[in-house]
Computed example of a mutant assay.
Amino acid sequence: MTKDHRPYVVKKAYLKFQKFYARHFLRPQMDHLGPGFTFMRPWHVELFGAPIRLGAYATVIATPDKKVRFSVWPAEAGKGHITIGDYGLICPGVRISSAEGITIADNCMIANGAYITDSDWHGIYNRLSFGKARAVTMERNVWIGDSAIVCKGVTIGENSIVGAGAIVVDSVPANCVVVGNPARVVKNLDPNETFTTRAEFFSDPARLARDFMAWEQAMLRGNTLFGWLRHLLFPTRGD
């Protein structure tokens, strides 16, 4: 489909249903879900275990073929958690699995298909054990690239970027770009530069909501219920 043929009233009802679904089915499974959250296709978000915490203005995007999965399997009593700060972005296919503890600070972005884990999940010799688990920490404004893997015991410093497909097995300093397997620093960022974070995007939530509403209305202007149903049942080239 190259165009959204839904009338605005249908699109608005769909967005309200997504919000209702997240509140009714996902929020009760979390220890904390901050205000201003957005879940796109929340029925494709899978939660297992506790505690799982998401901060304010979290954006979680899931698709039928790329579910988002947050799983806590404690290695021992009192261990294991997933804690994500404010303004986080979780893209389709992201998996986060914790046995010890995974802490992700504010303004972090995790791209399509990334995997973050704090455990091996099996011992080298004892394949029935959980293996060794060591906490993972991502500091503020970290960007994890498409299909990257972040392994146990890693700390990723503030503002740093993990390139697409990288496998991170050692800690990453602040203000750098790492790529490869195993990931290595290929570029240092200027810490004196101003970083524009996702917090800026949400600095005026009321205005942002109005802007999105105006944009949706403009994009869907002229769409009718009959036209939408016709395109659903009898799509033509260019739909």
Score class of each variant (00 low, 15 high):
residue 224 T to W: 10
residue 145 G to F: 03
residue 111 A to S: 15
residue 171 S to P: 02
residue 15 L to N: 09
residue 47 L to P: 00
residue 219 M to E: 14
residue 88 G to D: 05
residue 51 P to K: 09
residue 200 E to T: 12
residue 177 V to T: 02
residue 153 G to W: 01
residue 83 T to W: 08
residue 4 D to N: 15
residue 133 A to C: 09
residue 233 L to E: 07
residue 163 G to H: 07
residue 34 G to P: 02
residue 43 W to V: 14
residue 211 D to M: 14
residue 13 A to D: 11
residue 170 D to N: 13
residue 171 S to C: 08
residue 159 N to R: 12
residue 230 R to V: 10
residue 159 N to V: 11
residue 125 Y to L: 13
residue 147 S to W: 03
residue 8 Y to E: 05
residue 8 Y to A: 12
residue 117 T to G: 01
residue 187 K to F: 04
residue 52 I to L: 13
residue 192 N to V: 10
residue 116 I to N: 01
residue 193 E to I: 08
residue 51 P to V: 10
residue 54 L to W: 04
residue 75 A to R: 01
residue 188 N to K: 12
residue 195 F to M: 14
residue 18 Q to W: 09
residue 215 W to P: 00
residue 112 N to V: 12
residue 138 M to V: 13
residue 21 Y to N: 10
residue 162 V to I: 15
residue 88 G to R: 06
residue 173 P to Q: 05
residue 103 T to M: 07
residue 80 G to T: 03
residue 237 R to C: 06
residue 89 L to M: 08
residue 173 P to R: 08
residue 101 G to Q: 08
residue 6 R to N: 06
residue 222 G to C: 08
residue 98 S to K: 05
residue 126 N to T: 11
residue 121 W to N: 04
residue 199 A to N: 01
residue 222 G to L: 09
residue 48 F to Q: 13
residue 147 S to T: 06
residue 140 R to L: 07
residue 11 K to T: 09
residue 80 G to M: 03
residue 233 L to M: 12
residue 120 D to P: 00
residue 182 P to E: 08
residue 20 F to Y: 14
residue 95 R to T: 15
residue 97 S to A: 09
residue 85 G to N: 04
residue 197 T to N: 06
residue 97 S to P: 00
residue 62 A to G: 02
residue 60 V to Q: 00
residue 154 V to I: 07
